[in-house]
Write a protein that binds this DNA or RNA. Structure first.
Lengths: 127, 127
DNA sequence: TATACTGTGTATATATAATATATACAGTTA
DNA sequence: TAACTGTATATATTATATATACACAGTATA
């Protein structure tokens, strides 16, 4: 599993790890019931403390994406793939809602926000 | 000037203050050259430390929205209103770009994101 | 079958940086 | 000098990250 952490990224390391594991699950790169690298393995690969990786795994378990068994390892939880995608959709919707509200306070209309989004898609197609 | 801070909001207090001052400037509620409440006044109103308000004012000055004169007070900088709106537009575009990228990693298309945004607007009109 | 080995996760104590505070200091004007 | 203004210093609390010592699970082997 390829995980890359950035020290310039203000996001804490354990969250960067969490996010990339979620993406691995959502993309099918990590399958249900599959064993993840041990916290020591991953800590060594990322040149990061074991505790930091543990924090990422523990939080992912709390959110229901992993199951950890002491002495055995951590495993991808059941039925997490489509759930993860749905969770992300809701998360995105919440952020969009916040954007529209904030924009309004600055006198930027919802139509204008939609226009910005459309311009991003067009620029993407162009390249 | 009405500012409301929330302790459940994970955003630090000084950033909540900054954001609401920016909105007051963008909306014209605070005009160019106008004097802001003294840090002590605002600290007392918000039941918050003077240092926290100072931090907000100092950062706003660094970003160019305020000018502070020791012994006199803090004042809205010149030509900040339209600049602020433009800055916000750029900020929003950056966030939208990030959303589209992240969504793609979860197998959510840009069209789907646009759809979510459209649904928000529709729900708003409905209410 | 007992036990030692090697893998796994866990708990405790510590360091550093960001946020928020209280209190003492200094500039401006009347 | 009085009554405003912002500023500087030292301290507390919380989040993030770490090192090190501990405990659990499976397996090889004496």
């Amino acid at each position: 599993m390829l995980i890359v952490i950035s020290y310039t990224n203000p996001e804490p390391i354990f969250r960067q790890i969490m996010e990339q594991i979620k993406i691995a699950i959502a993309s099918g790169d990590l399958k249900e019931e599959e064993k993840l690298p041990s916290i020591r393995e991953m800590a060594q690969e990322l040149k990061v403390s074991v505790i930091t990786v543990k924090r990422a795994y523990t939080d992912l378990e709390t959110e229901g994406w992993l199951v950890t068994r002491p002495g055995l390892g951590s495993f991808v939880a059941r039925v997490s793939r489509s759930d993860l995608k749905e969770e992300k959709r809701n998360e995105i919707k919440k952020v969009l809602l916040d954007i529209v509200d904030t924009a309004a306070q600055y006198g930027i209309t919802a139509e204008e926000v939609a226009g910005l989004l459309a311009s991003i898609e067009n620029e993407r197609k162009g390249s």
